[in-house]
């Protein structure tokens, strides 16, 4: 059975001989939201770059919406899969926010009207509509990251990969980001987020994949993942603060967020 996005027994070895992934399989459906967690060097970003065709597998196949990425160029695949880099400065190269966001749609040979529409909708979604005339380099890093997010959204890909989207974001940035993910998923887009921010995972993703030592070591319900001590230990990942607290108090398993915690405290009362 083939999924909308699948990695089938993928291995990836960099040209210098460094092996980054070994026999990894992932299946992700249309309209799904998935978090990928794990330490640096575990293979998260390599996996993401296989999904958008920046990397082609050494062995195995990557399928996107019926395409085998080996048979298409990165430019062709980028119409289907958009990747927002961890560091926005690896991505930005225009001196006007509007031009930066319009670059992708222009390359897709969309009409002037469509380009303008896509740019405005994307800017609206990430709440930078007032900044379209600014120079991206005059904006703080946290906002530059939203510029690059809009650039990818404006190309209207079916899959969007966000690499460390919460880094350096304040409360409003985090809220905007959660809202962007909700809207994308409502539009039947697939959103894959690579992150170290476990609170963000707990409140925005039901499905989490854990990567460690070039492998996917777990894939499932976020609640179960964050209470699977063996997996977390193997991956070198700590659960969200509230899960850690619940654990040290000996509360029931599966607590991730403040609301879960309070529900459980209420039950303890009755019990």
């Amino acid at each position: 059975m083939s999924s909308f996005l699948s990695l089938e027994n993928i291995s990836f070895v960099y040209p210098n001989g460094h092996s980054a992934l070994e026999d990894v399989t992932m299946h992700i459906e249309k309209g799904e939201r998935v978090a990928i967690i794990g330490q640096n060097g575990a293979g998260k970003t390599t996996a993401a770059k296989l999904m958008n065709g920046l990397n082609k597998p050494t062995t195995g196949d990557v399928w996107i919406d019926g395409w085998n990425t080996k048979e298409y160029t990165t430019a062709q695949i980028s119409r289907k899969v958009g990747y927002v880099f961890q560091n926005p400065d690896d991505q930005i190269f225009h001196h006007r926010v509007y031009d930066e966001i319009a670059f992708g749609p222009k390359n897709l040979k969309l009409s002037e009207q469509e380009i303008e529409k896509n740019v405005h909708e994307a800017a609206e979604m990430v709440k930078i509509r007032d900044l379209l005339e600014e120079n991206p380099y005059d904006l703080p890093l946290s906002i530059r990251k939203f510029v690059t997010t809009a650039s990818v959204i404006a190309m209207n890909p079916q899959v969007i990969i966000l690499d460390e989207p919460t880094a350096g974001q304040d409360k409003m940035g985090l809220e905007t980001l959660a809202n962007v993910i909700d809207q994308l998923v409502e539009q039947e887009k697939t959103v894959i987020t690579i992150t170290h921010d476990m609170e963000f995972v707990a409140s925005n993703f039901h499905r989490t994949m854990v990567m460690a030592h070039r492998n996917k070591i777990a894939d499932g319900d976020t609640k179960e993942i964050f209470w699977n001590h063996a997996i977390l230990k193997e991956a070198g990942v700590k659960p969200p603060y509230i899960s850690r607290l619940s654990q040290s108090l000996g509360l029931k398993e599966g607590i991730l967020e403040i609301s879960d915690f309070i529900e459980q405290i209420k039950k303890e009362k009755r019990g």
């Binding site: 304040d170 409360k171 409003m172 985090l174 609170e199 969200p240 603060y241 509230i242 850690r244 607290l245 040290s248 403040i258 609301s259 915690f261 309070i262 405290i265």
Partner: peptide
């Protein structure tokens, strides 16, 4: 003011609101 509080303080404040009064609002684990 667009700034988060530690998760532990958020928890304590929410418990207070729901009538489960803690001695003080915690800020650390």
């Amino acid at each position: 003011h667009g700034t988060l509080l530690p998760q532990f303080a958020m928890l304590g404040l929410e418990m207070n609101k729901q009538g489960m009064r803690l001695g003080r609002i915690p800020v650390t684990e």
